Simulated scan of single mutants.
Amino acid sequence: MDFSLLTEALASKSFEKIANVCDDLMLQVASEGVEFKDEWPYVIHLLGHIYVNDINNARFLWKSIPSSIKENQPEVAAAWKIGQRLWTHDYAGVYEAIRGFDWSQEANVLVNAFSELYTKTMFKLLLSAYSTISVQDAALFLGMNEDDATNYVLQHGWVLDPTSQMFNVKKQATVTEQKLDPSKLQRLTEFVFHLEH
């Protein structure tokens, strides 16, 4: 089997491409009638779907993995544990599943990238959902201890009330860039010209 596209995506840290590359390779190999169950990079394939938050396809992949692989390759089960936590919206559990396994070097790169992305996603969720939140809850959602979570959110402009141990969430200003459509500008110019003459 030629895994060069997958190797290239991993090497270039194009993690968002991994699920599609694996899906395409799996279809290609299956169409050729080649038996691949023991050689297939199930861990990377599962983590690829998890990275792009494609939990439905991760579930379908998990169901298609032979039980002998699930039983004999603990890293495959560990990758699916992350998917299960995402499926059930167990935010703290996602971090526990990430930290709860000693990942291989290849998987560790992808798991760490997902962890960073997930933390950013959770931070955005907190920004949109809360005006105040406790230190404890912020730490839970961000998968950090309370000191690290405090440092993280303070760097983003949040304010801590030391008495109540609550953060005042600072909404970040969204800058919307208006794009000028040349055809609209032309029509506006013609309209103004008509008015003047």
Rank of each mutant, 00 (worst) to 15 (best):
L110N: 00
N112H: 12
W103G: 03
Y95H: 08
S104T: 14
A92S: 13
Y130M: 14
A79Q: 00
D90N: 15
T119P: 04
I82W: 00
N108T: 04
V111R: 00
A113D: 10
G83Q: 00
K124P: 02
S104V: 09
V135D: 13
A107S: 08
S104F: 07
T132D: 14
S128V: 11
R99G: 15
A97I: 01
E96V: 08
K120L: 06
R85P: 06
R99M: 10
Q84F: 01
S115T: 12
E106H: 06
K124G: 06
F123A: 07
I98E: 10
V111T: 03
S134D: 12
A113E: 08
L117E: 13
L127S: 13
R85I: 01
A92Y: 11
E96N: 14
W103T: 04
S115D: 15
G83F: 00
S128Q: 14
E116H: 10
W80R: 02
I98G: 02
T88F: 08
N108H: 10
A113H: 12
K81E: 07
E96R: 07
S128T: 14
A129H: 12
G100I: 04
L117D: 12
S134L: 07
G100V: 03
T121E: 12
W87K: 09
L127D: 04
V109Q: 06
T119E: 09
E96S: 12
V109H: 06
G93R: 02
L125I: 10
Y130W: 13
I82K: 00
A92T: 11
H89C: 13
L110Q: 01
G93P: 13
S134Y: 01
A97G: 09
K124Q: 12
R85T: 10
L117A: 08
F101E: 09
D102Y: 07
L86A: 05
Y130A: 15
A92D: 10
F114D: 03
E116R: 07
S104H: 09
W80H: 02
L126I: 15
T132I: 14
K120P: 05
M122D: 04
F123K: 08
I82M: 02
K124I: 04
K120R: 13
G93A: 08
T119Q: 09
Q105N: 13
Y91T: 14
S115P: 05
E96F: 05
Y91P: 12
W103L: 06
M122I: 09
K120C: 05
S128P: 04
A97C: 06
Y118H: 08
L86M: 13
I133Y: 01
S131E: 13
Q105L: 13
W80K: 01
S134T: 15
K120G: 05
I133C: 10
V94D: 05
L117V: 04
W80C: 00
G93T: 12
Y130G: 05
W87H: 11
L110R: 02
V111Q: 01
Y118E: 12
